[in-house]
């Protein structure tokens, strides 16, 4: 994945989950019982909105860091994919687990959240540990 595409998609992820925040506010304003009367759903949708938006911003930072630190290209492209997919899995895992859930626990889609979190953590650790392909220009 190219750096430009990573930046564009990161901004798209931020926009997606911020728009979801607008939707949640609208549901609250309209006193939607599907949201208000279901505490578990409300909590998970909030988590999805907040995590998705924040992890989108994290991807923006990561895109900048990958360039700044001259991360080897064989890693950089995969880190971009892993970080973006990770952000989406965390955000959408919470949302899916909240939309389709059982009486006491989230639905099985919430299992995607740890998978996304693992990808993000692996990506960040890789960026921290990897030596630059070329020394950064002063």
């Amino acid at each position: 994945m190219s750096p430009q595409r990573h930046l564009r998609l990161s901004l798209a992820v931020v926009a997606l989950f911020l728009a979801m925040g607008l939707w949640l506010e609208a549901m609250l304003g309209l006193r939607s019982q599907g949201l208000l009367a279901d505490e578990l759903r409300r909590e998970l949708l909030r988590l999805g909105h907040a995590h998705g938006a924040l992890l989108g911003v994290l991807n923006l930072g990561l895109a900048w860091a990958l360039e700044r630190l001259c991360t080897p290209p064989a890693w950089a492209g995969r880190i971009r994919i892993a970080a973006l997919v990770g952000a989406l899995l965390v955000g959408l895992g919470f949302v899916g687990g909240g939309l389709w859930h059982g009486p006491t626990d989230p639905g099985p889609l919430v299992l995607a959240v740890p998978a996304g979190a693992l990808m993000l953590v692996s990506s960040l650790v890789a960026v921290v540990l990897l030596r630059p392909a070329e020394p950064p220009s002063q």
Partner: peptide, 18 residues
């Protein structure tokens, strides 16, 4: 090889979990 190592590091744990 570097690419394989990267994929394993970045996607392995998540795929294992799934």
């Amino acid at each position: 090889n570097e690419g394989r190592r990267a994929s394993l590091w970045l996607f392995g744990p998540a795929l294992g979990w799934l």
